[in-house]
């Protein structure tokens, strides 16, 4: 009997569900079972990541695949959240793992990355430092203000996303963004592999003549997982979290956002522009690594 249950579980794992063994997907699974109760079949025990053991009807398992939300649904934020990122400049050594993970996940080509690691030097006397730069998901976003068709929009959970099925390609947002966070599909994007229909939450597939940018991986956030760049960073330089819950994590440690920002004297780039970014930077003091110039051949 035990083995049989395990077998079912295995089938379950094989179906694309496993990613859905999160609190949210788990709940919807149960709901799906309740409605399909007449669909008699064997019961399977599942374990969700928050530790709840649920018993579901096996015949319902394959039905749920991990589809990202529709463009309309993607206009609403995840309720009760306000996502923020904190970048600890003292820990970045230009390892570029975040770029790699991001490029991989969003199937980007190197000519239009969502993340750039900039070599910054505030003045001649101070040492240069590396600055990982994504979209700042501003609370007063210039790009959203100027968009003529609402293709780029601000959600209640602080994310600024782009609906590339609505974008008309005027590039006003690119001109407006003071942080040069946006990239444009000037030509036909390389073919991208995906089983899913387009969602602004995945940014895949890209479309010719439309604009793109870092999206904070909302498909991951829906599963209560942090964006790919956060876990990819080998030095824990990137923190991600929820301002409302006042906690951020870099994958290994979780700290209170307010404490971190206060104690490390966090700042935001070009505060004077009034854009209210949701990406904070911790000053590059007491560095984990001495500054080293980028190797030859790396674009800079």
């Amino acid at each position: 009997m035990k083995n049989k249950a395990a077998d079912h579980r295995r089938k379950f794992l094989k179906s694309s569900i496993y990613a859905g063994v999160s609190a949210i997907a788990g709940t919807s699974l149960i709901q799906g079972c309740n409605t399909g109760a007449s669909n008699a079949g064997e019961k399977v025990k599942l374990l969700t990541t928050d530790g709840t053991l649920v018993e579901v009807n096996q015949s319902n398992l394959t039905k749920m695949s991990h589809q990202p939300v529709s463009p309309d649904e993607a206009r609403k934020g995840i309720p009760g959240r306000h996502f923020v990122m904190v970048v600890d400049l003292s820990r970045c050594r230009n390892a570029r793992k975040c770029i790699k993970a991001c490029d991989h996940h969003h199937q980007l080509t190197p000519d239009r990355p969502f993340i750039k690691v900039l070599r910054m030097q505030d003045n001649k006397a101070s040492s240069p430092y590396w600055m990982p730069k994504k979209c700042f998901h501003c609370d007063n976003p210039p790009c959203v203000k100027v968009c003529p068709v609402g293709a780029t929009y601000k959600r209640s959970d602080a994310l600024v996303l782009i609906d590339n099925k609505r974008c008309i390609g005027c590039r006003f947002c690119m001109a407006a963004c003071p942080y040069s966070a946006r990239v444009f599909n000037w030509g036909k994007p390389k073919p991208q592999k995906t089983d899913h229909s387009y969602s602004p939450e995945t940014s895949v597939p890209s479309q010719i003549g439309t604009v793109e940018k870092c999206d904070f991986c909302p498909d991951m956030l829906r599963q209560d997982k942090v964006p790919h760049c956060i876990t990819a960073c080998p030095n824990g330089a990137l923190y991600f979290g929820d301002q409302i819950a006042d906690s951020v994590t870099n994958g290994s440690e979780t700290v209170r956002l307010s404490t971190l920002l206060r104690d490390k004297a966090a700042y935001r780039y070009h505060e004077e522009l009034g854009t209210e970014p949701n990406v904070y930077y911790l000053p590059p003091s007491d560095r984990l690594f001495p500054f080293k110039e980028a190797p030859e051949g790396q674009p800079s």
């Binding site: 100027v146 390609g169 005027c170 006003f172 479309q207 003549g209």
Partner: peptide, 23 residues
């Protein structure tokens, strides 16, 4: 001509946001 997606010009009428200087 400058638009990346001239085929979607109709979006300006459907989804036009009067907050945008382009509108």
């Amino acid at each position: 001509v400058d638009m990346g997606r001239p085929d979607r010009f109709i979006n300006v009428l459907i989804h036009g946001r009067i907050q945008s200087p382009i509108i």
